Amino acid sequence: AQQNRMKLLIERAIIDLCSSTLLPDKMVIADLGCSSGPNALALVSVAVEAIHGYCLQFQQPPPELCVFLNDLPDNDFNTVVKSLVTLRRINDPVVLTGVTPGSFYERLFISSSVHLVCSSSSLHWLSKVQV
C-alpha cells in the first residue's frame, strides 16, 4: 500500500517537474535511505520509468539520467552496486548511477544539482528540511 502511494507521488512529481519547465537534457535523481536488498531500486526505478513514459507520451527525447543511492556507510553497498548494473542495463538512454554513503543530515550533493529526491522511510526522522 505504501509503495503504491509512493509510486503515485513520484509519478506526479515527475509530471510536475517535466511540464512546469522546459524539460532539462540532464536530470539527477537521489534516493535517501535506499537500504539494500530487493527494494533498494524501487523508488528510483519508478522515477526513471515515469520520465521515460512522459517523454514517450509527449514525443520528447529523454534526458540523460544520473541516479544516486544514499544510505549510511554501514549499508551493504556491494549488493546495491550489483543492482545498479541492472538499472543501467534495462534503460535507454544510459542511466549513470552511483552511491553516496553518508548521513542526509550532512551535505551530500553540490548546490542545485538534484532534480528529484525521494525517500520511503528515512525522512520521518527529520524535524526540518536540510538544505
Results as ranks from 00 to 15, higher is better:
Val44Gln: 06
Gln60Val: 05
Ile29Tyr: 08
Val48His: 02
Leu96Asn: 15
Val67Ser: 09
Pro93Cys: 07
Ile14Cys: 02
Ser103His: 07
Ser111His: 08
Lys128Val: 11
His115Gln: 14
His124Gln: 15
Val46Asn: 12
Val99Lys: 06
Val95Trp: 00
Leu84Tyr: 00
Ala1Pro: 10
Ser83Asn: 10
Asp92Asn: 10
Ile10Gly: 02
Ala42Met: 13
Val81Ala: 12
Ser113Asn: 01
Leu32Thr: 05
Asp31Pro: 11
Ile90His: 02
Asp74Gly: 12
Pro63Trp: 10
Gly33Trp: 03
Lys7Asn: 03
Ser122Glu: 04
Val85Met: 00
Ser45Leu: 07
Asn75Met: 03
Cys34Pro: 02
Cys66Ile: 14
Ala13Lys: 12
Asn91Met: 00
Val48Tyr: 06
Ile10Lys: 05
Leu108Gly: 05
Val46Ser: 02
Ala50Met: 13
Cys18Phe: 01
Glu49Tyr: 06
Pro62Ala: 15
Pro101Gln: 12
Asp76Gly: 05
Val67Ile: 14
Ala30Thr: 05
Glu64His: 07
Val131Pro: 12
Met6His: 13
Val81Ile: 15
Ser121Thr: 11
Pro62Asn: 09
Asp16Tyr: 01
Leu56Met: 12
Leu8Ile: 09
Gly37Glu: 13
Ala50Leu: 06
Gly33Met: 09
Ser122Asp: 09
Cys55Gly: 03
Thr97His: 02
Val44Asp: 05
Ala47Lys: 10
Ile51Asn: 06
Gly98Cys: 02
His52Glu: 09
Arg12Ser: 11
Pro73Cys: 02
Ser120Met: 07
Cys18Val: 01
Ile29Ser: 03
Thr21Val: 09
Ser45Pro: 01
Ser36Ala: 13
Ser122Gln: 08
Gly33His: 06
Val48Ile: 13
His115Phe: 04
Pro73Ala: 11
Phe109Ile: 05
Lys26Thr: 14
Ser112Met: 03
Lys128Phe: 11
Gln59Gly: 05
Cys118Glu: 01
Asn91Tyr: 02
Ala42Cys: 09
Leu126Val: 15
Asn4Lys: 04
Val94Glu: 01
Ser112Ile: 05
Ser122Leu: 15
Asn39Trp: 00
Val80Lys: 07
Leu108His: 04
Gly98His: 09
Ala30Pro: 05
Asn70Ile: 11
His115Ile: 05
Asn39Met: 00
Gly37Met: 13
Leu32Val: 08
Asn39Leu: 12
Pro24Asp: 06
